[in-house]
Design a protein around this nucleic acid. Structure first.
Length: 644
RNA sequence: GCCGCUUUAGCUCAGCUGGUAGAGCAACUGAUUUGUAAUCAGUAGGUCGUUGGUUCGAUUCCGACAAGCGGCUCCA
């Protein structure tokens, strides 16, 4: 007999060789029907794998991430079985579960897969699922496994085998498909009730663009049809929030073939949002002791050689313009220009910290396939600033920047984000990173300490630093689930020296300042793209391109409408009258769709009493109010930048 | 940049196997003067992304290019 310990601490006795599924059955049949896999001593196992010794056991169902991942990974095997039937000789790389489903990377040997194929594969998967074929685990000797895949001529699996040792190699078979796989898997294919293959994509083998491109097939499966329907419904909802769709509907921005890829044109509505954001940034930065500067859009090659950007960054810069034998580059970043401003006049420790801010326009030649609405563009306006400070001032300055981030997040109600501390990779010093091992470690520790002190939750990722120092990125997700860096806060211990930036310290010695690069509002492009999705187009009043729409019941009340408009304009409230000869229902509908925060319905009663009937976007009729009171309230809402 | 897909009126989309295009909304005109999410009628609007080719004839078939979309790689 062996002892099985459950998560709640309960202990039960079972025969050695008992499976998690047996254990589940001993508890209840209903549970047994739901068990997908099991955590045995913290390791995820097949529910059908015999347990020979005392163990801690957690049964995994769809409600556990581990259960879900097992389910999707098993679905990838099921898909592979169907693909192998329809594309004989296909070779498989890996088929892991992902955030929403799974994929399998395959080499079709020069053949192509089309959407029609997906339907056929999906159909076959459904048939195979109904057969409830068990996933059978078989430990195998390395030599035998190698021989098997040599026979098949499958270089991908042979590559995987290279890194595996005897004793840790297993094959899994379900129906007519056998794969090298660590497992675990669900008990049988019958658990898979709803299947949707979502798309075909290319993916470089091992994620390296030097390697061959494999065909990646994405899919998602569920234990019940209803869950798939709900998932597809959710995707539809997400699409409605997509900033590209909303940007068009609300006339925020546009692209034009003649202007160029990735070069957004900001329409009047979008420009209003830009100006409001800049106003916020300028107020905030002024309060925090920043000074504003303005710099040109281009600079000579020599400056980017000094900064060290050119060797690291050249591929992402527009090619140079050559004039009189001198090369000029469009700036891809503002820092070198700002460094030159620091260097323009001698500095003493009394001048520090010096904080130079600019909404700088940068151009980056992003690869065409990378462009994505406003989230990834080639012309961007950065909420940039550089803080030059002493080592002693660093922690406080870095902390102040961090506080500014949090202040902004509060204003916008940004709650779902992850702070990511990006570190250097020691083996890449001198290639991807400035070769200053001690400074890397020292600054990374300084940043980590500040984050810990302020209690800011963060994750650390290796090998993601800027070439000149560690950085903190704020990661956010677009409506359709793509991850982006919204804002960034970087430490720079390299460029100060490269630009020979110096200040005179207390002891009358020349010292190089530390530099903090920061962009809490990221770029207008990405930030507004994000805000569109964040608010689903329903901007708070202070940001809304149009704040108030006056809707007269009929043109008999036009004079009153105009006098209201004049009053609103007096306070710089963005307002318009719907002068169309339409019924009120129509005017309301159109204004609702344009997501204007306030609608003022005015007719006989309102005109007679000097009132307005207020309608809040998305909330309906809010009742009647004196026009003057409404204006006072709205003025406060706008100046306080209240959320809706 | 790479793999796959897509491109028809301002927008959203129809258009079977080749015979030069349709709808709804928007726009414009007229009627209606309207009380909280679509009043009615009429008019106008497209060399079917661009460009080669096949064909008596191409929006439709094939190629190239461009842009967009889904990924990969890369990034604010």
């Amino acid at each position: 007999m062996i002892q099985i310990t459950f998560p709640d601490g309960a202990v039960r006795q079972y025969e050695a060789g008992v499976t998690a599924l047996d254990v589940a059955k001993s508890i209840s049949e209903g549970l047994a029907r739901k068990v997908l896999a099991a955590e045995v001593n913290g390791e995820v196992w097949d529910a059908t794998r015999p347990i020979e010794q005392d163990a801690a056991l957690k049964l995994l169902t769809w409600d556990d991430k581990g259960g879900q991942n097992t389910f999707w990974h098993s679905s990838a095997h099921l898909m592979a079985e169907a693909i192998e039937e329809q594309f004989p000789g296909v070779k498989f790389w890996v088929g892991p579960p992902v955030e929403n489903g799974f994929y399998y990377d395959v080499d079709l040997g020069g053949r192509q897969m089309h959407e029609d194929d997906l339907k056929a594969i999906e159909k076959r998967m459904n048939e195979l699922a109904k057969q409830s074929n068990p996933y059978i685990r078989k430990p195998i000797a390395k030599a035998e496994a190698v021989a098997y895949f040599e026979e098949k001529g499958d270089e991908y699996k042979l590559d995987l085998l290279q890194n595996l040792q005897d004793g840790e190699i297993t094959f899994y078979t379900q129906g007519g498909f056998t794969d090298l796989c660590r497992g675990p898997h669900i008990p049988h294919t019958g658990f898979i009730k709803a299947i949707k293959l979502t798309n075909i994509a290319g993916a470089y083998w091992k994620g390296n663009e030097q390697n061959k491109m494999l065909t990646r097939i994405y899919g998602v499966t569920f234990p019940a049809q209803k869950q798939l329907d709900e998932y597809l419904q959710m995707l539809e909802e997400a699409k409605k929030r997509d900033h590209r769709k909303l940007g068009k509907e609300l006339s925020i921005f546009t692209f034009d073939d003649d202007v160029g890829q990735g070069l957004p044109l900001w329409l009047p509505n979008g420009t209003i949002i830009i100006e409001e954001l800049e106003k916020l940034a300028k107020e905030t930065e002024q309060d925090a002791g920043y000074k504003r500067v303005v710099t040109p859009h281009i600079a000579k090659e020599s400056m980017y050689l000094t900064s060290g950007h050119l060797p690291y960054y050249q591929d992402s810069m527009y090619p140079p313009m050559e004039l009189d034998g001198t090369k000029y580059y469009l700036k891809a970043m503002n820092c070198p220009h700002h460094h030159k401003i620091f260097a323009a006049e001698p500095k003493s420790y009394k001048d520090l910290p010096l904080r130079l801010a600019e909404y700088g326009t940068c151009y980056r030649y992003e690869q065409s396939g990378e462009l994505f609405g406003l989230m990834r563009v080639r012309c961007l306006h950065m909420n940039d600033a550089h803080i030059y400070c002493t080592k002693e001032q660093f922690a406080q300055e870095f902390r102040a920047v961090n506080d500014m981030y949090l202040k902004y997040f509060k204003i916008f109600g940004i709650e779902k984000y992850v702070m990511r501390l990006s570190l250097h990779e020691p083996s890449k010093l001198g290639q991807k990173y400035i070769d200053e091992p001690e400074l890397w470690i020292e600054t990374e520790n300084m940043v980590r300490e500040v984050l810990k002190e302020t209690g800011t939750p963060f994750v650390e990722v290796p090998d993601e630093g800027a070439f000149y120092g560690p950085k903190i990125d704020v990661q956010i997700w677009s409506a359709i689930g793509r991850e982006f860096t919204l804002a960034t806060n970087q430490v720079d211990f390299a460029q100060g020296r490269r630009f020979k930036l110096e200040f005179t310290n207390h002891n009358n010695e020349a010292e190089t300042p530390l530099i903090i690069h920061r962009a809490p509002l990221g770029t207008h492009e990405r930030f507004i793209g994000f805000l569109l999705e964040h608010f689903a187009g329903k901007f708070p009043a202070w940001l809304a391109p149009l704040q108030v729409k006056i809707l007269p019941i009929s043109d008999k009340f036009m004079d009153y409408a105009k006098s209201l408009l004049a009053q609103l304009k007096k306070w710089d409230i963005r307002a318009e009258i719907d002068e169309r000869n339409e019924k009120i229902g129509k005017k309301i509908r159109d204004t609702e769709l344009m997501k204007v925060p306030y609608m003022l319905v005015i007719g006989e009663k309102e005109q007679a009493e000097g009132k307005v009937a207020i309608r809040r976007q998305g909330k309906g009729d809010m009742g009647t109010e004196d026009a003057a009171v409404f204006i006072e309230n709205l003025k406060a809402e706008i100046s306080e930048r209240s959320k809706p």
